[in-house]
Write a protein that binds this DNA or RNA. Structure first.
Length: 367
DNA sequence: AAACTTCTCAACCGCTTGCAT
DNA sequence: TATGCAAGCGGTTGAGAAGTT
């Protein structure tokens, strides 16, 4: 495979294109078509390499290019397609008429990627960041002023969430159910708690990693694994916060509330654990699930809030799949995580929650 | 108003792919 | 099968714009 020599000849111009050059290129292609890019610049009277001409044409001068800001729908489509295709910008661009791969790539890197990070979502995997997910599992034992060691039950709980890995929207919903409560912002906003919060995040990752390994182990080995972990924790890595609870009495209440939510969280885990792949696509009882994870919220109200926030603020959702979306048809052919829920209400709610998640627990600003 | 920082995006670089010979 | 070339792709760069101090 030889490599295309490009712009190696001296005398070929590089850098920004002038209006005159643009004019020459457009005029030539209008008259003769694209033809061979290697010979085009010479024939068109341009001191550019063919590659530079092709790029200028495909990314800027092509008549069917749509200019201006990306619409809300386009943004949603990009996020969904990226969750399926990854950094295949040309493949994404093929499903967004008038947009170039370069433009989409730039927009992703400068806008969407940053926003997903702020929302606590990994822009590569499109899943919630583990370190922000199951905070209540740590808050619960902390509320009893005891050091936290993961028990077999904790690992079982984490195991129960394993199937959710296939359904990132549900994961987001689970995470944000915890964090959308009125307790979390106060906890996160309390500067005194930040060191503990960071410790908790590290412990959380350790537990998650532990659980991941345990899932793959036979029962007895998993028990040994857990025992080993407890020993490590006892050796000095334990995470507790009894003093901080005393410092701020309101936190005690918040922690108790979080512990209650942990129960709801587990209930949902049990429900989701029993789901078989395809179940969701075949007709998940969304209202029932919504009620289970967020009893205080009614789904229609959430949807209304979401519609209103997306219209007024143009904040993007994480996912939402209208049946007419350009991604329709892709889901069945990939191992990806994009999931269609028919009406889309659960997606909307997840997006709403996800926005709250970022506001509630973005500790990166303090690091 | 000036200096500095951050953001945006057009363009480039270098690699891979696909095709012809 | 090996080689050369053109086209395409994704990552990166850097100049200019916008924002901040």
């Amino acid at each position: 495979m030889g490599r295309a020599p490009c712009c190696e000849k001296s005398g070929l111009k590089k850098g920004p294109w002038t209006p005159e050059e643009d004019e020459k290129l457009v005029a030539y292609i209008k008259k003769h078509g694209q033809g061979n890019w290697r010979t085009l610049p010479k024939n068109a009277g341009l001191a550019r390499c063919g590659k530079s001409c092709r790029l200028r044409w495909t990314n800027y001068l092509r008549p069917d290019i749509k200019r201006g800001r990306f619409s809300f729908e386009e943004e949603e489509t990009i996020i969904q397609l990226h969750s399926i295709l990854g950094n295949k910008w040309s493949a994404i661009a093929a499903r967004l008429p008038g947009r170039t791969d370069n433009e989409i790539k730039n927009y992703w890197n400068t806008h969407i990627r940053k926003r997903l990070l702020r929302m606590g979502i990994d822009p590569v995997t499109h899943a919630p960041r583990l370190d922000l997910l199951d905070l209540s599992a740590l808050l619960k034992p902390a509320a009893t002023a005891a050091a936290y060691y993961p028990t077999q039950a904790d690992l079982d709980t984490l195991r129960a969430f394993e199937p959710l890995a296939n359904y990132p929207d549900l994961l987001r919903l689970a995470a944000s159910t915890l964090l959308s409560s009125s307790t979390s912002p106060k906890i996160a906003g309390d500067q005194q708690l930040l060191p503990w919060l960071l410790q908790a995040q590290m412990a959380q990752q350790a537990v998650a990693s532990m659980a991941q390994q345990a899932v793959a182990l036979p029962q007895q080995q998993a028990a040994d694994h857990h025992h080993q972990f407890v020993q490590q924790q006892q050796a000095g890595a334990a995470c507790s916060m009894p003093e901080l609870v005393h410092v701020n009495p309101t936190v005690q209440q918040q922690l108790e509330s979080a512990a209650q939510q942990q129960q709801q969280h587990q209930d949902m885990a049990v429900a989701c654990h029993s789901m078989q792949p395809g179940y969701i696509d075949d007709g998940l009882d969304v209202p029932a699930l919504m009620q289970m994870v967020q009893p205080a919220a009614d789904a229609s109200n959430l949807q209304q809030q979401w519609s209103s926030s997306s219209n007024n603020n143009n904040v993007g959702s994480v996912v939402s799949t209208p049946s007419s979306s350009p991604v329709a048809g892709l889901n069945n052919h990939s191992t990806s995580t994009a999931t269609t829920y028919g009406g889309g209400s659960i997606n909307d709610a997840a997006a709403l929650f996800s926005m709250q998640l970022s506001e509630l627990l973005d500790v990166s600003d303090y690091m």
